[in-house]
Amino acid sequence: MQMNMVSAINNALELILKENEKVVLLGEDIGKDGGVFRVTEGLQAKFGEKRVMDTPLAEAAIIGTSIGMALAGMHPMPEIQFAGFSYPAFNQIVSHAARYRSRTRSALSVPMVIRTPVSGGVRSLEHHSESPEALYSHVGGLLVVEPSNPYDAKGMLIKAARMNDPVLFLEPTKLYRLFKQEVPEEAYEVPIGKANVVREGSALSIITYGTMVPVVKEVVDDKKVDAEIIDLRTINPLDEASIIQSAKKTGRVVIVHEAQTSFGVGAEIAARIAEKAIYELSAPIIRVASPSLPYPFPGYENYYIPNAKKVASAIDKVLSA
């Protein structure tokens, strides 16, 4: 069936709710309204207010109560309306969701999927376009994933809901309705912790994820360059093996993400390649990412987000080195 990312996630949530009585969805405006992006549309009507709940407007308590539910044997799937509003819940995510298993040496765990829209490019107000994956990957104990297409979104969400871990499931708003794809109607899993080789190639490796995957694909097609494109899909834990393998194969690496350059996911990838494959590189690693600044107001976002031109220029540079 042809689905965009919104309908693929909606479909996944429906299958998860059917499959597991322990699952409840909770968040702001996710019930009758179906969520501000309509991702949970129709689910409250199908499963009732007991399983698809509108909460009071308080992110720390949405995550905090979800942690309590998980500790008591449920599998909550809270939604944070925008990733920029996850910071009031930062304490709960970082101090508790990420640590409960290690704090109790696995006696208690927090099976939970936090869904939240990320990244920009859709002319939203301040705080609606954040890409906080590096913040949450840095702490350890949290799985941080970000699909870039409807098929992966559905399969990864189903996988996340079947794991006994806290998963931060980042949904790029720009990709919610950007394109449709053939998606099976039944439940299936896409692995977490495993990157996807979107395109095999030998001239260079482009390591990317989220909103930048379609941009990179477009540039590679336009330039007719034999690039290997790796879509990380899981940010933490990083699929280091796939990255190193590709870097060794092509000897040239460009890393592309929308989040800020400094202290970002790209820095982590570059460091790992430097540690394990530097003698097999023919060119310096290049990062293509946003400036090391807070995300701007929407009027400036096209000056901020990496675009096709910036990606193309990095490819030229790494190939000519």
Binding site: A60, T65, G68, L71
Partner: peptide, 8 residues
């Protein structure tokens, strides 16, 4: 909030 979630 954990206590409240557990009670839920």
């Amino acid at each position: 909030p954990h206590a409240v979630g557990m009670a839920f």
